[in-house]
Simulated assay, not measured.
Amino acid sequence: MRDSDLRLLTETRATDPGRIGELAAARKRPDSPLGPSGRALVIAADHPARGSLRAGAEPMAMADRADLLRRLCLALERPGVTGVLGTADILEDLLLLGALDDRAVFASMNRGGLAGASFELDDRFTGYDVDAIARFGFEGGKMLLRVGLDDDRTAPTLEACARAVSGLADAGLVAMVEPFLSRRGEDGRLRNDLSVAAATTALTVAAALGHTSAYTWLKVPVIGDGGEDMARVLSATTLPTLLLGGEVTADPEATFTSWARALRLPTVRGLVVGRSLLYPPGGDVVGAVDTAAGLL
């Protein structure tokens, strides 16, 4: 990303904002949200909108928009990458850069549960709504559903997610739901429970949202090493499942191995990965993306 690229993005936004809608209408859409192989590799980049900027040991890694866009464009150019997940500001930058043709676009919907906030479980829908997703011609919407059994702020999030699932289905669009059972530790920090029982419970709650599950996909973390424990979790549903990449780890080889195991399970249709591929140890975005694509 050169300074001239950044100036052009800002210049267009300031003087010709209607250009974004024009480019969305003209975007060449993929034949399937899964891509030609029937297996998806979606690059996720909706973390900044929730104030979650950390990647690995760097607390503000995703705060540099030019660097993030450079990494996203590198990833989206690679064979095997089928789509991207993001908020309006990021997806519109990618539209202006011409990076979204033939890629499935999933719009991030609820980003109101800011990282570290006292109200974090109250995941308000502060991003895309169903009408906007359909108007822009995107392939679907994604929502985060963290269930805190001891926090009554979970209830409005459940209701809002159910409405979004129903609305997306009525529009014939994918509803990608990312469910967790979450609780606060003694330090007050909200953490997702990645035990088999908790992951299974969260999955079953998410799968039943809305007045139809015909267009619902689940976005779930890899439990354990991706083998027997993950099979037990996914035995609870027949819905298409995409594996969540999660945090950047110090041992990417172990991460890739766990993904490979989980990808063999019958309901798994691909990967949705953000920081693990965009900010890999050593910084080789192309190498990390190509390795992930190879697993498919």
Rank of each mutant, 00 (worst) to 15 (best):
I133H: 01
M109C: 15
L85V: 07
G127P: 02
D93T: 08
A171C: 12
D122G: 13
A107T: 02
M143E: 05
E178Q: 10
F180I: 08
R124F: 14
R103V: 07
D67H: 11
L121W: 06
A45V: 04
Y128D: 01
D129Y: 05
E58Y: 09
F106W: 10
G148R: 03
A117W: 14
R54V: 12
G113E: 04
R78Y: 08
D123T: 13
M143I: 07
A88L: 09
L69K: 03
D151E: 12
A117E: 14
A160I: 07
L76D: 00
R65E: 15
D89E: 14
E120N: 08
F138C: 03
D152I: 12
A49R: 09
A61L: 09
R50I: 13
F138M: 12
T82I: 00
R78W: 07
F125W: 12
D170Q: 10
S108V: 06
F136S: 09
L173C: 01
L76W: 01
P79F: 07
A99Q: 06
S52D: 12
V147M: 11
R163T: 07
A40R: 00
R153L: 09
F125V: 13
E92I: 04
M109V: 15
L76H: 01
L121S: 05
A155F: 11
G83P: 01
R124D: 09
L85F: 04
S108C: 07
D101L: 08
M60I: 11
A55K: 02
R54E: 12
V105I: 10
S118V: 15
A104N: 01
M62R: 14
L168C: 01
D89F: 10
D129S: 05
A49K: 03
R70A: 14
A162M: 05
G113H: 08
A104M: 01
D151F: 07
Y128E: 02
G167K: 00
S108D: 11
L91I: 09
D67A: 15
L74I: 15
E58N: 15
D122Y: 15
T157P: 01
L114M: 14
T87I: 10
T157M: 05
H47Q: 13
